[in-house]
Design a protein around this nucleic acid. Structure first.
Length: 943
RNA sequence: GGGCAUGUGGCGGAAUUGGUAUACGCGUACGUCUCAGAAGCGUAUGUCGCAAGACUUGGGAGUUCGAGUCUCCCCAUGCCCACCA
């Protein structure tokens, strides 16, 4: 009976590691390859949940494996200890935020210890300690001196009930997290870090990183670079002008009005000219009252015209109306846009609502890009001419659709223009020939569509030029339709609604869009655009900008980082104000600029620090009468933007981190974390490092070489774990029941760690891992006393394969298949009656990263000295075999397999393959016409 | 609405460059051990079929000697961003 007394040996092993100081990395030891493995540090919420285990225990497997492989591994840990929950506990339960935080940290340290994680606690970092935050303040001051920290007015979320500003994170669906009141927007003066100054470099830096494309793409989207131009619209008979940003200057001839955001600075200046002042003011009041939620839930366009004034389109010189509407954002571009309803969906919607004119300036060019009809570049082009007509019933609101049974098409009326005929004549002719109607009431060309495609029957590229007509029939008078036309297609009446799913060709759908005044945003040919007509829109873009005196410009959707928080439990902003209200940095000798303790946490109209008498007195004492403190604290994302630098030198009282150590250990080899940090934390940290690099304070421009986003552990019910759902898995319970090693290995086995998926928590899974560990224990105990010392060739190969696979899979963060490889090895070993001690020792070392406690126990049971975690990974060389396995296929279907010598010729392989009865049977006496032979893999006989 | 990702047994998942689909584990069934049960051990386990064999990676097409893998269209699910001009 095997003994698996995990309660006993887990504790013993943990004590052993501590007493040996096994994981305190010697940062100066460069005799081994350096490896900085980082995992996002936790917020001390109080309880270690299973997600923490997933984050830390699985990453620990890699840390341990790297050490066995001879690397000098830095695997640090700390706590992101400033933050709101501490303050909420203070408000709700009257606790001291500091005490609450430190108590949680202590509890979590104890819980982390049960995991057997090989963290280097000697370098622990707590962001809420003055030792740490004085350097956060010092770095902020550097940013300030560099002009990267700036104070300016901004909109913030305001809870009218609590009389306080809220952090973005405190706003849940537009409501105050605490009291549920709808939040408002207020303008306040706030501190910003100018991350936008680094937008371009943050974008460019991504190209150098070997991250998963989806992570990079998320950051690119967040930065949101768009290239366009500033264009100016003069206001008729006044001095003001409206500057707009557009990415589509090519559509300027179609700009039929201009829109300002309600918060645009020009609005108040223009107000004195308008004749409907009241309506405009009401609209502004209405939109500022509107909550963010209302804006995002109800996207119906609203707006008001500035009556009595007009803007001048700089291209057409026409006077066009000016509107104010909240679909234009005050915070992006110039806060004003030129509206081109023909080629912008939002403008089109506004136009439909307010019944404004539309002016089309780009004729769609639809290019077939896939399938056999895909347009082939660099091949000759044939122009063709035809018509498309939308035909309306003489009475009802239905239109002609043609169904082509032979090819399965649905189209509008369409035809080719014959020589000598006008498009209009062609339309009339086609109506008569194809559907037989005699009389029309109305006909109008509504646009032009060009289609580029490859005409396979004639083997030529074609560009079809097709005017689109709208025709209303006068009456039901109908001639007989020729039978061959009738056979080709039959006619049905369809409503506009039914027409859309009916039409199969993109050009016909585009024709329908023209009729319905939908925006066309694709590429095309310029029209209604003066001297630019006939050219491709992409090509004229910058010529048009020049012709109207515009200026090329790049915009980013990334906003500057608002770091002020009207909160208590955070890093005090190291700023004081002189009697004139001008901000000054706090001199280095007064750092750390301590967080006061005589503070009222209750929600008030001012930040909590404003209630501190000590803080005010401190400022007066140091700086003099009339000087006042900054009352805001820093966003906690600032604390976490540089913590990985501090790990290298966490006790340094003279510097934020040691330059020589940073030079050795940066950039971080691998950073493991959650996908929710892709756009915030990861981007902020990259910005910090770039800014510090420019200040020559860090030696690298990118902090993290590799980044892996792990998945999420779901509750037993398959739902995301949450306290309210009551499906939160408490790991302590399972550690008690199955042991830490079983939980660790289960989490590693559950799925690939290198991609963010969702994995269920499955009790049977944990139990089965425990069984596996017991099997290993039995295996080792059964053989531990044997004196047998031979390892067969085939066994050594099995072991070598497992060793190699575990290393390779772990490097890709695929611990699930690494564990599977270990299981395969154990399955093989169990079949062998006697196992040598050499093999047992290797097995225990291979087990060590995954089940560190058990491995340590077995190591001792084998009578070995020291710790199993101080050994080196047993890498046997995989011999090249003299035999190869070749799969035999006939016509691509597997019919058998062969084991043959590696040096065999193709002819011999074919002969051997044909000798197989299953192959001979499949060939049924025929000679193969072709043989595909991939040595060492496959032979495919084709008949 | 946009972007990204993912669809493989009853379930989690595996499958270097296109080259034996379903590794490993769970679950299930039967057997063994036992007075009995649990645990352990053994066997089986994609679907249809007695079998030979046929079919099978969300659906449909395509490229290829050969497609889970590459291309296109469609469907479903998840995540992120959401009026960014």
């Amino acid at each position: 009976m095997a003994s698996y007394d995990y309660r006993e040996f887990e504790k013993k092993a943990q004590e052993k590691w501590t007493s040996l100081g096994l994981y305190n990395a010697d940062l100066s030891d460069e005799s081994r390859e350096l490896y900085y493995l980082l995992v996002e540090f936790p917020y001390p919420s109080g309880d270690l949940h299973i997600g923490h285990w997933y984050a830390f225990a699985v990453t620990d497997i890699y840390a341990r494996l790297l050490r066995l492989r001879g690397k000098n591994v830095l695997f640090p840990i700390g706590f992101d200890a400033f933050g709101l929950p501490a303050e909420n506990a203070a408000i709700k339960h009257g606790l001291d935020p500091k005490e609450w935080t430190y108590k949680n940290i202590e509890r979590m340290r104890a819980q982390l210890a049960t995991m057997g994680a090989s963290f280097d606690w000697s370098k622990e970092v707590l962001t809420c300690e003055p030792d740490y935050y004085q350097w956060t303040q010092w770095l902020f001051i550097k940013f300030f001196e560099q002009g990267l920290a700036e104070r300016r007015e901004a909109s913030v979320k305001w809870c009218p009930k609590d009389q306080t500003v809220l952090a973005n994170e405190q706003v849940v669906n537009g409501h105050c997290e605490r009291c549920g009141t709808l939040v408002e927007e207020r303008r306040l003066t706030q501190w910003f870090l100018k991350i936008t100054a680094y937008a371009e470099r943050l974008l460019a830096g991504l190209e150098t990183l070997p991250w998963r494309e989806e992570i990079k793409e998320a950051q690119r989207a967040w930065i949101g670079k768009s290239e366009g131009a500033y264009l100016e619209f003069l206001i008729a008979s006044h001095d003001e002008k409206i500057k707009v940003f557009t990415t589509r200057p090519d559509t300027i001839f179609g700009a039929t009005y201009v829109v300002l955001a309600p918060e645009h600075p020009l609005v108040s200046a223009l107000l004195k000219y308008v004749s409907n002042k009241k309506a405009v003011q009401d609209y502004i009041a209405m939109t500022t009252r509107k909550t963010e939620r209302e804006r995002s839930e109800n996207k119906e366009k609203t707006g008001v015209q500035f009556e009595g004034i007009a803007a001048i389109n700089p291209a057409t010189k026409e006077e066009i109306p000016i509107y104010i509407a909240d679909y234009v954002l005050g915070s992006y571009g110039t806060g004003a846009v030129m509206a081109v309803p023909a080629h912008d969906e939002r403008d089109a919607e506004f136009t439909r609502k307010f019944n404004l004119p539309v002016r089309r300036v780009i004729e769609p060019v639809l290019t077939q890009t896939s399938g056999t009809a895909a347009f082939r570049e660099n091949e000759p082009i044939q122009d063709t001419y035809g018509i498309i007509a939308l035909i309306k019933h003489w009475e009802d609101d239905v239109y002609v659709g043609l169904r082509w049974p032979a090819v399965g098409w649905g189209t509008l009326l369409t035809g080719t223009i014959d020589k000598g005929m006008t498009p209009e004549e062609t339309v009339l002719k086609e109506i008569r020939e194809e559907i037989g109607y005699m009389n029309i009431k109305f006909m109008k060309q509504i646009g032009m569509i060009h289609s580029k495609y490859y005409h396979a029957p004639k083997k030529q590229n074609r560009i079809g030029h097709t005017p689109v007509f709208y025709v209303e029939l006068a009456d039901s008078a109908q001639d007989k339709v020729a039978s061959e036309e009738f056979a080709k297609h039959n006619m049905i009446w369809l409503s506009l609604e039914d027409l859309k799913p009916f039409l199969t060709a993109t050009s016909h759908l585009a024709a329908l869009d023209l009729f319905e005044n939908r925006a066309y945003t694709g590429a095309g040919i310029m029209t209604n655009s003066g001297g630019f007509n006939g050219r491709a829109n992409e090509e004229v873009k910058w010529d048009i900008v020049a012709s109207v005196g515009g200026e090329r410009a790049t915009q980013y959707r990334l906003r500057d980082w608002l770091v002020s928080r009207q909160r208590y439990w955070g890093c005090p902003i190291p700023i004081v104000y002189d009697p004139e209200g001008k901000p000054h940095v706090i001199p280095a000798e007064y750092l750390p600029w301590l967080l006061p303790t005589d503070v009222d946490f209750k929600p008030a109209s001012k930040a909590p620090l404003a209630s501190s008498i000590e803080l005010k007195e401190r400022v007066v004492r140091i700086f003099g009468k009339g000087w006042t403190p900054e009352y805001d604290t820093l966003d906690t994302f600032v604390d976490s933007s540089w913590y990985f630098l501090r790990y290298l030198d966490s006790k340094n009282i003279h510097k934020f981190s040691d330059a020589a150590l940073m030079k050795k250990w940066l950039p971080i080899n691998r950073y493991s974390g959650g996908s929710e940090h892709t756009t915030m934390h990861l981007l902020y940290a990259r910005f910090f490092i770039k800014a510090l690099y420019d200040l020559a304070l860090v030696p690298v421009e990118e902090p993290f070489i590799e980044r892996f986003n792990r998945g999420l552990i779901m509750g037993p019910d398959g739902q995301k774990m949450s306290k309210s759902k009551g499906n939160v898995v408490n790991p302590d319970e399972f550690v008690q029941k199955y042991g830490a090693d079983a939980v660790r290995i289960y989490l590693a086995f559950i799925g690939p760690y290198n991609e963010p998926g969702n994995y269920p928590w499955n009790l049977d899974g944990v139990a089965s891992m425990r069984k596996f560990l017991e099997r290993v224990t039995r295996l080792v105990e059964k053989n531990s006393r044997s004196t047998f010392d031979e390892t067969s060739y085939s066994l050594s190969q099995v072991i070598a394969r497992a060793q190699l696979k575990i290393v390779e899979d772990s490097d890709r963060f695929k611990f699930n298949t690494a564990v599977a490889a270990l299981m395969v090895l154990v399955n093989e070993l169990e079949k062998i009656p006697r196992i040598s001690k050499t093999v047992l020792v290797q097995l225990v070392v291979m087990l060590a990263p995954f089940a560190p406690h058990l491995a340590e126990d077995l190591w001792e049971k084998l009578g070995k000295e020291g710790s199993v975690h101080q050994q080196s990974w047993p890498m046997a060389t995989l011999a090249t075999t003299a035999e190869q396995k070749i799969v035999v296929q006939v016509n691509g279907k597997k019919r058998g397999s062969l084991a043959l010598a590696t040096n065999i010729s193709e002819v011999e392989v074919v002969a051997a393959a044909r000798a197989l009865p299953t192959v001979a049977n499949a060939l049924s006496g025929e000679e193969p016409t072709r043989v595909v032979y991939i040595p060492g893999k496959i032979i495919n006989l084709i008949v």
